[in-house]
Protein backbone atom coordinates (compact mmCIF):
# COMPACT_ATOMS: atom_id res chain seq x y z
CA UNK A 1 0.00 0.00 0.00
CA UNK A 2 0.94 3.62 0.00
CA UNK A 3 3.48 3.44 2.73
CA UNK A 4 5.36 6.51 1.69
CA UNK A 5 4.45 9.60 -0.16
CA UNK A 6 6.76 10.09 -3.08
CA UNK A 7 8.59 13.21 -2.12
CA UNK A 8 12.10 13.98 -3.17
CA UNK A 9 13.44 11.27 -5.36
CA UNK A 10 12.54 8.12 -3.45
CA UNK A 11 12.03 5.27 -5.90
CA UNK A 12 9.46 3.03 -4.20
CA UNK A 13 10.13 -0.56 -5.16
CA UNK A 14 10.90 -3.64 -3.09
CA UNK A 15 14.51 -4.72 -3.03
CA UNK A 16 17.20 -5.97 -0.71
CA UNK A 17 18.82 -2.52 -0.85
CA UNK A 18 15.56 -0.78 0.12
CA UNK A 19 15.26 -3.20 3.04
CA UNK A 20 18.62 -2.28 4.53
CA UNK A 21 18.67 -0.46 7.82
CA UNK A 22 18.73 3.29 7.05
CA UNK A 23 21.47 3.85 9.63
CA UNK A 24 23.68 1.32 7.86
CA UNK A 25 22.89 2.85 4.51
CA UNK A 26 23.81 6.32 5.70
CA UNK A 27 27.07 5.17 7.24
CA UNK A 28 28.00 3.08 4.22
CA UNK A 29 27.30 5.99 1.90
CA UNK A 30 29.65 8.13 3.95
CA UNK A 31 32.24 5.35 3.85
CA UNK A 32 31.85 5.10 0.09
CA UNK A 33 32.37 8.83 -0.33
CA UNK A 34 35.51 8.72 1.78
CA UNK A 35 36.69 5.77 -0.30
CA UNK A 36 36.24 7.77 -3.48
CA UNK A 37 38.70 10.31 -2.11
CA UNK A 38 41.29 7.55 -1.69
CA UNK A 39 41.13 6.58 -5.33
CA UNK A 40 44.21 7.42 -7.41
CA UNK A 41 43.69 5.61 -10.66
CA UNK A 42 41.27 4.89 -13.39
CA UNK A 43 40.93 1.33 -12.12
CA UNK A 44 39.85 2.68 -8.76
CA UNK A 45 37.18 4.85 -10.33
CA UNK A 46 36.06 1.95 -12.47
CA UNK A 47 35.69 -0.13 -9.31
CA UNK A 48 33.53 2.53 -7.69
CA UNK A 49 31.42 2.95 -10.80
CA UNK A 50 30.99 -0.81 -11.08
CA UNK A 51 29.99 -0.97 -7.44
CA UNK A 52 27.41 1.78 -7.86
CA UNK A 53 26.07 0.11 -10.99
CA UNK A 54 25.72 -3.27 -9.26
CA UNK A 55 24.01 -1.73 -6.23
CA UNK A 56 21.66 0.07 -8.55
CA UNK A 57 20.75 -3.20 -10.26
CA UNK A 58 20.23 -4.91 -6.90
CA UNK A 59 17.97 -2.05 -5.84
CA UNK A 60 15.87 -2.39 -9.02
CA UNK A 61 16.49 1.28 -9.67
CA UNK A 62 17.20 2.15 -13.32
CA UNK A 63 20.75 3.44 -13.66
CA UNK A 64 19.52 6.49 -15.54
CA UNK A 65 17.79 7.61 -12.31
CA UNK A 66 21.26 7.95 -10.82
CA UNK A 67 22.39 9.94 -13.83
CA UNK A 68 19.30 12.12 -13.55
CA UNK A 69 20.46 13.09 -10.09
CA UNK A 70 23.55 14.61 -11.71
CA UNK A 71 21.63 16.89 -13.98
CA UNK A 72 21.09 19.80 -11.58
CA UNK A 73 24.82 19.71 -10.86
CA UNK A 74 26.07 19.67 -14.44
CA UNK A 75 27.30 23.27 -14.38
CA UNK A 76 29.12 22.79 -11.13
CA UNK A 77 30.76 19.73 -12.60
CA UNK A 78 31.81 21.62 -15.69
CA UNK A 79 33.08 24.50 -13.60
CA UNK A 80 35.08 22.19 -11.35
CA UNK A 81 36.64 20.58 -14.38
CA UNK A 82 37.46 23.80 -16.19
CA UNK A 83 38.86 25.66 -13.19
CA UNK A 84 41.14 22.80 -12.25
CA UNK A 85 42.19 22.33 -15.84
CA UNK A 86 43.41 25.90 -16.33
CA UNK A 87 44.70 26.84 -12.94
CA UNK A 88 47.38 24.34 -12.07
CA UNK A 89 50.57 26.14 -11.06
CA UNK A 90 53.14 23.54 -12.00
CA UNK A 91 53.68 20.34 -13.94
CA UNK A 92 54.51 19.61 -17.56
CA UNK A 93 52.82 21.79 -20.08
CA UNK A 94 50.59 19.81 -22.37
CA UNK A 95 49.19 22.62 -24.44
CA UNK A 96 49.80 26.28 -24.77
CA UNK A 97 47.78 28.67 -26.88
CA UNK A 98 47.79 32.38 -26.31
CA UNK A 99 46.95 32.91 -22.62
CA UNK A 100 45.65 29.38 -22.13
CA UNK A 101 48.02 26.91 -20.56
CA UNK A 102 47.03 23.36 -19.79
CA UNK A 103 49.40 21.41 -17.61
CA UNK A 104 49.46 17.71 -16.90
CA UNK A 105 48.81 18.34 -13.22
CA UNK A 106 45.82 20.50 -14.12
CA UNK A 107 44.31 17.80 -16.26
CA UNK A 108 44.80 15.23 -13.50
CA UNK A 109 43.27 17.52 -10.88
CA UNK A 110 40.36 18.30 -13.14
CA UNK A 111 39.64 14.64 -13.70
CA UNK A 112 40.06 13.75 -10.02
CA UNK A 113 37.90 16.50 -8.62
CA UNK A 114 35.08 16.20 -11.08
CA UNK A 115 35.02 12.41 -10.78
CA UNK A 116 34.96 12.69 -6.98
CA UNK A 117 32.09 15.13 -7.15
CA UNK A 118 30.32 12.90 -9.64
CA UNK A 119 30.57 9.83 -7.41
CA UNK A 120 29.69 11.80 -4.30
CA UNK A 121 26.43 12.88 -5.90
CA UNK A 122 25.73 9.43 -7.33
CA UNK A 123 26.34 7.81 -3.95
CA UNK A 124 23.99 10.11 -2.09
CA UNK A 125 21.41 9.79 -4.88
CA UNK A 126 21.52 6.06 -4.47
CA UNK A 127 20.85 6.54 -0.77
CA UNK A 128 17.86 8.83 -1.28
CA UNK A 129 16.50 6.77 -4.15
CA UNK A 130 16.36 3.64 -2.02
CA UNK A 131 15.46 5.13 1.38
CA UNK A 132 12.12 6.79 2.05
CA UNK A 133 12.33 10.26 3.62
CA UNK A 134 10.79 9.02 6.83
CA UNK A 135 13.34 6.21 7.11
CA UNK A 136 16.11 8.64 6.36
CA UNK A 137 14.96 10.91 9.14
CA UNK A 138 14.67 7.92 11.50
CA UNK A 139 18.18 6.85 10.62
CA UNK A 140 19.54 10.36 11.06
CA UNK A 141 17.78 10.69 14.39
CA UNK A 142 19.32 7.47 15.67
CA UNK A 143 22.79 8.31 14.38
CA UNK A 144 22.63 11.82 15.81
CA UNK A 145 21.16 10.81 19.15
CA UNK A 146 24.54 10.63 20.91
CA UNK A 147 24.81 14.35 20.14
CA UNK A 148 21.87 15.00 22.46
CA UNK A 149 24.37 15.35 25.28
CA UNK A 150 25.54 18.58 23.63
CA UNK A 151 21.87 19.56 23.18
CA UNK A 152 21.71 18.79 19.51
CA UNK A 153 17.96 18.54 18.79
CA UNK A 154 18.04 15.17 16.99
CA UNK A 155 14.53 14.15 17.99
CA UNK A 156 13.01 17.53 17.25
CA UNK A 157 14.52 17.65 13.78
CA UNK A 158 13.20 14.18 12.99
CA UNK A 159 9.76 15.12 14.32
CA UNK A 160 9.73 18.26 12.20
CA UNK A 161 10.68 16.22 9.17
CA UNK A 162 7.92 13.73 9.84
CA UNK A 163 5.28 16.42 10.34
CA UNK A 164 6.41 18.19 7.20
CA UNK A 165 6.04 14.95 5.27
CA UNK A 166 2.60 14.43 6.77
CA UNK A 167 1.39 17.91 5.82
CA UNK A 168 2.97 18.46 2.42
CA UNK A 169 0.17 16.61 0.58
CA UNK A 170 -2.46 18.38 2.68
CA UNK A 171 -1.00 21.77 1.87
CA UNK A 172 -0.64 20.84 -1.80
CA UNK A 173 -4.35 20.02 -1.94
CA UNK A 174 -5.08 23.28 -0.26
CA UNK A 175 -2.89 25.25 -2.66
CA UNK A 176 -4.71 23.63 -5.51
CA UNK A 177 -8.08 24.54 -4.03
CA UNK A 178 -7.16 28.15 -3.36
CA UNK A 179 -5.67 28.47 -6.85
CA UNK A 180 -8.83 27.17 -8.45
CA UNK A 181 -10.95 29.47 -6.31
CA UNK A 182 -8.85 32.48 -7.30
CA UNK A 183 -8.83 31.45 -10.94
CA UNK A 184 -12.61 31.20 -10.87
CA UNK A 185 -12.59 34.81 -9.81
CA UNK A 186 -10.36 35.78 -12.70
CA UNK A 187 -6.91 35.47 -11.17
CA UNK A 188 -4.22 34.68 -13.71
CA UNK A 189 -1.16 32.83 -12.51
CA UNK A 190 0.37 32.06 -15.89
CA UNK A 191 0.73 35.14 -18.04
CA UNK A 192 2.56 38.42 -17.68
CA UNK A 193 6.15 39.14 -16.76
CA UNK A 194 7.92 37.99 -13.65
CA UNK A 195 6.66 40.84 -11.50
CA UNK A 196 3.06 40.39 -12.64
CA UNK A 197 3.26 36.71 -11.87
CA UNK A 198 4.81 37.31 -8.48
CA UNK A 199 1.99 39.74 -7.73
CA UNK A 200 -0.58 37.16 -8.78
CA UNK A 201 0.91 34.78 -6.20
CA UNK A 202 0.10 37.09 -3.30
CA UNK A 203 -3.61 36.22 -3.07
CA UNK A 204 -2.52 32.58 -3.18
CA UNK A 205 0.23 32.74 -0.60
CA UNK A 206 -1.56 34.85 1.98
CA UNK A 207 -4.48 32.46 2.60
CA UNK A 208 -2.08 29.54 2.39
CA UNK A 209 0.13 30.99 5.10
CA UNK A 210 -2.81 31.89 7.29
CA UNK A 211 -4.15 28.39 7.02
CA UNK A 212 -0.75 26.80 7.61
CA UNK A 213 -0.35 28.76 10.81
CA UNK A 214 -3.82 27.81 11.97
CA UNK A 215 -3.04 24.18 11.24
CA UNK A 216 0.20 24.45 13.17
CA UNK A 217 -1.66 25.84 16.18
CA UNK A 218 -4.29 23.11 16.02
CA UNK A 219 -1.70 20.41 15.59
CA UNK A 220 0.37 21.63 18.51
CA UNK A 221 -2.70 21.49 20.70
CA UNK A 222 -3.65 18.03 19.47
CA UNK A 223 -0.12 16.75 20.07
CA UNK A 224 -0.12 18.14 23.57
CA UNK A 225 -3.51 16.56 24.25
CA UNK A 226 -1.93 13.27 23.18
CA UNK A 227 0.76 13.63 25.82
CA UNK A 228 3.57 14.79 23.54
CA UNK A 229 6.34 16.29 25.60
CA UNK A 230 9.49 16.02 23.55
CA UNK A 231 11.76 13.09 22.91
CA UNK A 232 12.44 12.21 26.51
CA UNK A 233 11.12 8.83 27.66
CA UNK A 234 9.59 8.20 24.27
CA UNK A 235 9.32 4.71 22.79
CA UNK A 236 8.92 3.97 19.11
CA UNK A 237 6.55 1.88 17.03
CA UNK A 238 9.01 1.85 14.14
CA UNK A 239 12.13 0.19 15.38
CA UNK A 240 15.26 -0.17 13.34
CA UNK A 241 16.71 -3.66 13.36
CA UNK A 242 19.96 -4.78 11.88
CA UNK A 243 19.57 -7.79 9.61
CA UNK A 244 21.76 -10.18 7.69
CA UNK A 245 21.56 -7.91 4.65
CA UNK A 246 23.19 -5.11 6.62
CA UNK A 247 26.14 -7.35 7.38
CA UNK A 248 26.56 -8.30 3.72
CA UNK A 249 26.28 -4.69 2.61
CA UNK A 250 28.92 -3.64 5.13
CA UNK A 251 31.22 -6.43 3.99
CA UNK A 252 30.74 -5.42 0.37
CA UNK A 253 31.67 -1.82 1.05
CA UNK A 254 34.61 -2.90 3.22
CA UNK A 255 35.74 -5.10 0.33
CA UNK A 256 35.52 -2.21 -2.08
CA UNK A 257 37.55 0.05 0.20
CA UNK A 258 40.09 -2.74 0.60
CA UNK A 259 40.41 -3.10 -3.16
CA UNK A 260 40.83 0.64 -3.59
CA UNK A 261 43.60 0.73 -1.01
CA UNK A 262 45.37 -2.29 -2.51
CA UNK A 263 45.09 -0.80 -5.96
CA UNK A 264 46.60 2.43 -4.65
CA UNK A 265 49.62 0.51 -3.33
CA UNK A 266 50.09 -1.79 -6.30
CA UNK A 267 49.66 0.89 -8.94
CA UNK A 268 51.12 4.04 -7.39
CA UNK A 269 50.87 7.06 -9.59
CA UNK A 270 47.89 5.76 -11.43
CA UNK A 271 47.23 4.78 -14.97
CA UNK A 272 46.44 8.01 -16.67
Amino acid sequence: MLNNITIGQYYPVKSCIHDLDPRVKILLTIALIVAVFLVHSAIGYALVLGFLYLTCRLAHVPFRMLLKGLKPLRWILVLTFVLNLFFAADGDILLQWQFITIRKQGLLNALHYSLRLLFLVMGTSLLTLTTSPIQLSDGMEMLMSPLKVIHFPAHELAMMMSIALRFIPTLMDETDKIMKAQMARGADFESGNLIARAKAMVPLLVPLFVSAFRRAGDLAMAMEARCYHGGEGRTRLRVLKLGRGDLWASLAVAGLIGLIIVEGIVLPGGLW
Binding site: L165, C227, T235, L237
Partner: peptide
Protein backbone atom coordinates in the same frame (compact mmCIF):
# COMPACT_ATOMS: atom_id res chain seq x y z
CA UNK B 1 -10.58 19.41 12.09
CA UNK B 2 -9.75 15.85 11.02
CA UNK B 3 -6.61 16.97 9.19
CA UNK B 4 -5.00 18.96 11.93
CA UNK B 5 -4.76 16.24 14.54
CA UNK B 6 -3.08 13.43 12.66
CA UNK B 7 0.67 13.56 13.06
CA UNK B 8 2.21 10.63 11.26
CA UNK B 9 2.52 9.71 7.59
CA UNK B 10 1.07 6.23 8.11
CA UNK B 11 -2.18 5.40 9.90
CA UNK B 12 -0.83 2.85 12.35
CA UNK B 13 2.01 5.14 13.34
CA UNK B 14 -0.47 7.87 14.04
CA UNK B 15 -2.46 5.57 16.29
CA UNK B 16 0.78 4.77 18.10
CA UNK B 17 1.72 8.42 18.59
CA UNK B 18 0.17 8.79 22.05
CA UNK B 19 1.60 5.45 23.17
CA UNK B 20 5.07 6.49 22.04
CA UNK B 21 4.70 9.67 24.04
CA UNK B 22 3.86 7.88 27.27
CA UNK B 23 6.61 5.34 26.73
CA UNK B 24 4.65 2.12 26.20
CA UNK B 25 7.00 -0.81 25.39
CA UNK B 26 7.13 -1.83 21.74
Amino acid sequence: NPDNQLVATVVREDVAFGLENIGVPH
